[in-house]
Amino acid sequence: MRHALDCRCAGLGFCRHKSLTRSAFVEAENKKDASMAKRYALRMDKPNSCTIIDVFTGQPAEFEKKMMIGIKTRRAEKIAGELNLQDAKRREEAGWES
């Protein structure tokens, strides 16, 4: 497991996730985020290649002025998570339920 790259605790000098495998860690994170509506999701194009889509429009997402098409899976997971977090903050600030 490449813990320092996969964990939100990276850089803190300690971590409660060290005993988890990557898949168990991802599952735990998904359960934690289950109450939040997710606007962005991954669509597998081919092995280790994803497109991040906006589930409301069905169109590829844009991140840092680039269309998120044909991205390596691990990077796509991180970007989709960041986009979903940004969307949740926008909804909260606007007073919308997630």
Rank of each mutant, 00 (worst) to 15 (best):
Met1Val: 06
Met1Lys: 01
Met1Trp: 06
Arg2Pro: 00
His3Ala: 01
Ala4Gly: 10
Ala4Trp: 02
Ala4Val: 05
Asp6Val: 02
Cys7Asn: 04
Arg8Val: 02
Arg8Ala: 04
Cys9Phe: 09
Cys9Val: 00
Ala10Leu: 01
Leu12His: 06
Leu12Tyr: 00
Gly13Leu: 07
Phe14Pro: 01
Phe14Trp: 08
Phe14Met: 04
His17Tyr: 14
Ser19Ala: 13
Leu20Gln: 12
Leu20His: 08
Thr21Gly: 12
Arg22His: 08
Ser23Ala: 15
Ser23Gly: 04
Ser23Met: 12
Phe25Glu: 11
Val26Pro: 02
Val26Ser: 12
Ala28His: 09
Glu29Cys: 15
Asn30Asp: 15
Asn30Glu: 15
Lys31Gln: 14
Lys32Tyr: 15
Asp33Met: 15
Asp33Ile: 03
Asp33Phe: 15
Ala34Gly: 10
Ala37Lys: 10
Lys38Gly: 06
Ala41Cys: 13
Ala41Gly: 15
Ala41Trp: 07
Leu42Cys: 07
Leu42Asn: 03
Met44Ala: 13
Met44Ile: 10
Asp45Gln: 07
Asp45Ser: 08
Asp45Leu: 03
Pro47Met: 09
Pro47Asp: 11
Asn48Gly: 08
Cys50Lys: 00
Thr51Glu: 15
Thr51Ile: 05
Ile52Met: 12
Ile52Gln: 02
Ile53Lys: 14
Ile53Leu: 14
Asp54Arg: 01
Phe56Thr: 04
Thr57Lys: 08
Gln59Glu: 13
Pro60Lys: 02
Pro60Gly: 05
Ala61Thr: 00
Glu62Gln: 09
Glu62Ala: 09
Phe63Lys: 01
Glu64Trp: 04
Lys65Gly: 06
Lys65Ser: 15
Lys66Asp: 06
Met67Tyr: 08
Ile69Asn: 00
Thr73His: 09
Arg74Val: 01
Arg74Gly: 00
Arg74Thr: 05
Arg74Pro: 04
Arg74Trp: 03
Ala76Tyr: 07
Ile79Thr: 06
Ala80Met: 01
Ala80Arg: 02
Gly81Pro: 00
Glu82Phe: 11
Leu85Gln: 10
Leu85Val: 01
Leu85Pro: 00
Gln86Cys: 11
Ala88Ile: 06
Arg90Ser: 10
Arg90Ile: 05
Arg91Thr: 01
Glu93Asp: 11
Ala94Phe: 04
Trp96Val: 02
Trp96Gln: 11
Glu97Tyr: 15
Glu97Trp: 14
Ser98Leu: 10
